[in-house]
């Protein structure tokens, strides 16, 4: 009984930490979870993930240096960021309710695919040109700024665009490229 209460309390704490934004970015670093939930935090996260499955949500761990091929080390887990994301797929209608028009989503897909195909770095001008072929001229610029603001891409002083933290957390890049190529 005491064991059950222990896990119930930890589950609650993990839920609070993962659902509510604590910093500028959502998600919680592995070391923060270890500090607040204890060394067995991976077990609690796994329990929460199983619970969230019924709600079509999942706990996702995003490693700084990409998913390790072997079992992650403690250092890798500490540096990783843990998020709660959707488990299934959204419908176009749902995305519209979230403030994403079909144009914006298609633009985001084009932007991300272009950056991936160019080894993760591409001049902003090039992305603008690609977007302009599908979207009105003024929207191309506005959309790129929006993707930057939301953390999907980032730019540098040389006007180069890169994938940013949100794309790494939310987008299955391999699947996206495979599906585009399969068309």
């Amino acid at each position: 009984m005491r064991r059950k209460a222990y896990y119930a309390a930890k589950l609650k704490r993990a839920t609070h930490m993962l659902f509510f934004k604590r910093h500028r970015r959502p998600g919680v670093k592995g070391w923060e979870l270890r500090k607040r939930l204890g060394t067995d935090y991976a077990k609690i996260i796994a329990l929460l993930d199983r619970y969230l499955e019924k709600l079509d949500l999942q706990v996702k761990t995003v490693f700084e240096e990409g998913t390790p091929s072997e079992k992650p080390t403690r250092e890798q887990l500490d540096r990783a960021r843990v998020y709660v994301t959707l488990r299934g797929e959204l419908t176009p209608k749902e995305t519209k309710m979230m403030g994403w028009r079909i144009d914006d989503i298609a633009g985001l897909a084009i932007t991300i695919s272009t950056i991936i195909s160019k080894k993760g770095k591409v001049p902003r001008k090039e992305v603008e040109d690609v977007l302009r072929r599908k979207l009105p001229g003024w929207k191309a610029n506005v959309n790129i700024d929006r993707y930057i603001r939301e953390g999907y891409i980032e730019g540098d002083e040389r006007e180069q665009l890169y994938l940013a933290w949100r794309t790494r957390a939310e987008v299955d890049q391999k699947k996206l490229v495979e599906m585009v190529m399969a068309q």
């Binding site: 419908t91 160019k118 939310e170």
Partner: peptide, 30 residues
């Protein structure tokens, strides 16, 4: 990159959006 650009050019934006939705798992944040 040329192949992917060509594919993206050919696809209507509705289809591109539909493909993206299949690989997109947005973060839940309050």
């Amino acid at each position: 990159p040329f192949l992917i650009e060509e594919k993206l050019q050919r696809l209507p934006k509705e289809e591109i959006a539909a493909i993206f939705l299949k690989s997109w798992r947005p973060i839940v944040e309050f």
